[in-house]
Write a protein that binds this DNA or RNA. Sequence first.
DNA 1: GGCGGCGTCGTTACTATATTACATTTCGGT
DNA 2: ACCGAAATGTAATATAGTAACGACGCCGCC
Lengths: 167, 167
Amino acid sequence: MTDDAIAAAFAPHDHQQCVHRALDEAAVRLKDQGARLTPVRRRTLEILLESHRAMGAYEVLDRLAAEGFGRQPPVAYRALEFLVQHGLAHRLQRLNAFAACLHPGDDHHPVFLICRSCDKVAEAPFTPIRDALSAVAREGGFHVERATVEALGLCAACAETEGQAPC
Amino acid sequence: MTDDAIAAAFAPHDHQQCVHRALDEAAVRLKDQGARLTPVRRRTLEILLESHRAMGAYEVLDRLAAEGFGRQPPVAYRALEFLVQHGLAHRLQRLNAFAACLHPGDDHHPVFLICRSCDKVAEAPFTPIRDALSAVAREGGFHVERATVEALGLCAACAETEGQAPC
DNA sequence: GGCGGCGTCGTTACTATATTACATTTCGGT
DNA sequence: ACCGAAATGTAATATAGTAACGACGCCGCC
Ligand SMILES: [Zn+2]
Ligand SMILES: [Zn+2]
Ligand SMILES: [Zn+2]
Ligand SMILES: [Zn+2]
């Protein structure tokens, strides 16, 4: 998860290939783990991958229902939870939403950078922040186990066009 | 917001005085701002202050309703939003909950340390984390405007009694 | 082939969280 | 006393998430 990867998430790129690669990698990882990438699960991942945005569970559900899958909340929540559990997607607390993981494979718990203009989400390395956080907490006698770090701001692409229409 | 303040939030302390001081400070601050600390608002703040825990809006609402205030959601949400707006309380995204601010006066946007055993919440300085976060983001061309940092872990008091009953 | 366990998928029904809209009351200034 | 703004209350609704249960299909075994 390099700095380039952050920029790449917001910049225009060969998205077909980006999606394809992610799906392939997902299939491989799941096979290794003995987990099944069923049609609903696969389609859910595809839907998340289509944009680099975070999507609410009900937004995903509408898409699934329109394509002939079940139309009740558990359908979406189960698929999303499965993806999160297997490191293929993340949950964004701040938005009550989910986003496909852009770096499955890296065993990670990232920091999220959310652009308030284009709504896209990037993942940044957690380590430097965790170090700062742990240090501050430890001095107060607190032991950090898990942390949520979600930043709202402006991506490079949107900063350039600020004032104009969103990218 | 010192390290001692973090430890103090979790450690036993003269809580009557702790609450009293916070209420006094709130009254002064609001008067300065020309805002009114009405009965519902004051009672809401007291309820939050009674524990150092985060409370859900409906939990607060139940308390208010039981004391003769309105029993519809907006009653609680409005009072809570008012307190948040005026820096007397914080909203915890991760818990869908609210906690009284322990350091009104410091103009701040803190990091939250939430003990998973006793549920108490402390506030830690944001600056060191923001620096680390901004640095990471900037290298990816991302400009951070606001960030949510909420850590789950174990406070010093609970770490000592771990394995026994929660403090 | 038939059987049974297990995981997946779908449904209904429900809980929890939060907001919109509108009527009524309260407060401060004139 | 009067007016307008802010605050309070209500009902209704929107959004987010979970529990419980039955049906179906797959796989390993008899
Ligand atoms: Zn892409
Ligand atoms: Zn953007
Ligand atoms: Zn206290
Ligand atoms: Zn504790």
